[in-house]
């Protein structure tokens, strides 16, 4: 991956970029421990060419297993997601602010961690088929945070 070439968010390529960095940093993830969950990222309010159920909505599924993530795919709707999953939902503007903050600081500041953004259910929301699925977001939170922190490693452009 060329580290100076901006990758469009949201896109499969952008998430694959993070997955690729996860592979390069396997030792870090080994230290944190294995991760076993499926995350769906929902982006709302983006450009209207979205393939999601509502205009402008996009869904991306990342399957974490052991010390990496082997599957990334864009979903046409949330119904296509694996049965077991949680959803991180936010507007493109919120995702952009979080990613830019990570890029600017090398990691998120105190007000841009995943937990900080999701805890009040606004501006980011975590949902799932049931509470135990939502709880997996808490169970692997540090690993998921590190996953997104890798966004500091390459420039991102936005739709």
């Amino acid at each position: 991956m060329g580290k100076n070439k901006a990758i469009l968010f949201p896109s499969e390529d952008w998430f694959r970029g993070l997955v690729s960095l996860m592979g390069e940093q396997e030792a870090t993830y080994r230290e944190l421990g294995a991760t076993d969950c499926t995350m769906v990222v929902k982006v709302t309010g983006g450009a209207s060419q979205g393939t999601g159920e509502d205009e402008g909505e996009k869904f991306f599924e990342v399957v974490f297993e052991d010390y990496g993530a082997d599957k990334v795919r864009e979903l046409a709707s949330i119904e296509e997601a694996s049965a077991s999953h949680f959803v991180l939902e936010a507007s493109l503007e919120t995702w952009r602010e979080m990613i830019d903050n990570i890029r600017d600081n090398g990691s998120p500041d105190l007000e841009h961690t995943l937990n900080y953004l999701t805890f009040p259910d606004d501006p980011m929301l975590v949902t799932g088929p049931d509470q135990l699925e939502v709880d997996t977001f808490y169970r692997y939170n540090e690993s998921l945070q590190r996953f997104f922190n890798a966004a500091a490693e390459f420039p991102t452009s936005y739709a």
Binding site: T113, N115, D135, T136, Y140
Partner: peptide, 16 residues
Amino acid sequence: KTIFRLCMQDEARHVA
């Protein structure tokens, strides 16, 4: 931040 994130992970296992 780090303390609470690490503790959160453990607690979620117990709840599960």
